[in-house]
Amino acid sequence: MRRLLVAGNWKMNASSSMAEALLSDILTADIQSCDVAVFPPFPYLAAAGVRLSNAAVQLGAQNCATADSGAYTGEVSVAMLQDVGCQLVLVGHSERRALFHETDAVVLAKTEKILAQDMTAVVCVGETLEQRQSGNAELIVKQQLSALLHQLKEAQWSQVVIAYEPVWAIGTGETATPEQAQQMHAFIRSLLAGVSQKVADETRVLYGGSVKAANAAELFAQPDIDGGLVGGASLTAEEFLGICRSIG
């Protein structure tokens, strides 16, 4: 059985006091029904790492460099993230792809750096509204995953989580119907089966895109949806914990 994961991507939000308050509320809740992870902005990772050092809640970073060290002003390496307590790193988020022009090759390079450090890569994929309306949603997602499917060894997939985030549902209030989300998650799992049935059975595939407490239970009840990558709703402890508690 795949254990569900609820991960909060704070994006470029929060402050020191807000981060402390959010983490305190999440830790006090002591969620047992699923795995929980948070992805604060870079400035708050070190303090969060201390706060979560003996906790069940996992710490993740929102991005990483493709280099290990050197003259890369403004970049942060995977080893640095691990040094402050991170266990997971997001790669390929649609905002990174669209705003910072990250290609599938860059996503693969970052994923390989994360796996080499024995950390978990949360790899994001998803289509735009135009791509969905033109009937190309599955083609786009397959293309985004293609390099990983061909380059990663079977054993490495134990350190990979896929997050399907339809771009048209991120921060818009729009959410894919449970049926739409399940259809794409099942398609992604069929691609993973091309690596091996074990990889298909064991790799967690999260849904992201305006997930909230009100719709989480119905989404997470789908057989191929293994939790959520939560954006705006992760900035409010009550809403984020409501999503976690929606898992029966």
Rank of each mutant, 00 (worst) to 15 (best):
M1T: 14
R3F: 05
A7Q: 10
S16F: 05
L22G: 03
D25T: 00
L27T: 11
Q32P: 00
C34N: 03
F42H: 14
Y44D: 05
A46N: 09
A48N: 05
G49D: 13
V50H: 14
S53L: 08
A55M: 14
A55R: 13
L59R: 01
S69P: 03
A71L: 10
A71H: 14
G74H: 15
L81K: 05
D83L: 09
V84W: 02
G85C: 13
Q87A: 09
L88R: 01
V89T: 14
R96G: 09
R97V: 03
A105M: 14
V106R: 09
V106D: 12
A109M: 12
E112L: 10
T120M: 02
L129C: 01
Q131R: 10
R132L: 11
R132K: 15
S134C: 09
K142E: 15
Q143I: 07
L145A: 11
L148P: 05
K153Q: 06
Y164I: 06
V167A: 04
V167I: 15
W168G: 01
G173V: 01
G173M: 06
F187G: 08
F187C: 11
I188W: 06
I188P: 01
R189W: 09
S196E: 12
A200C: 08
E202L: 09
T203I: 08
V211D: 00
V211H: 01
A216E: 02
G231S: 12
I243T: 00
R245Y: 03
G248T: 13
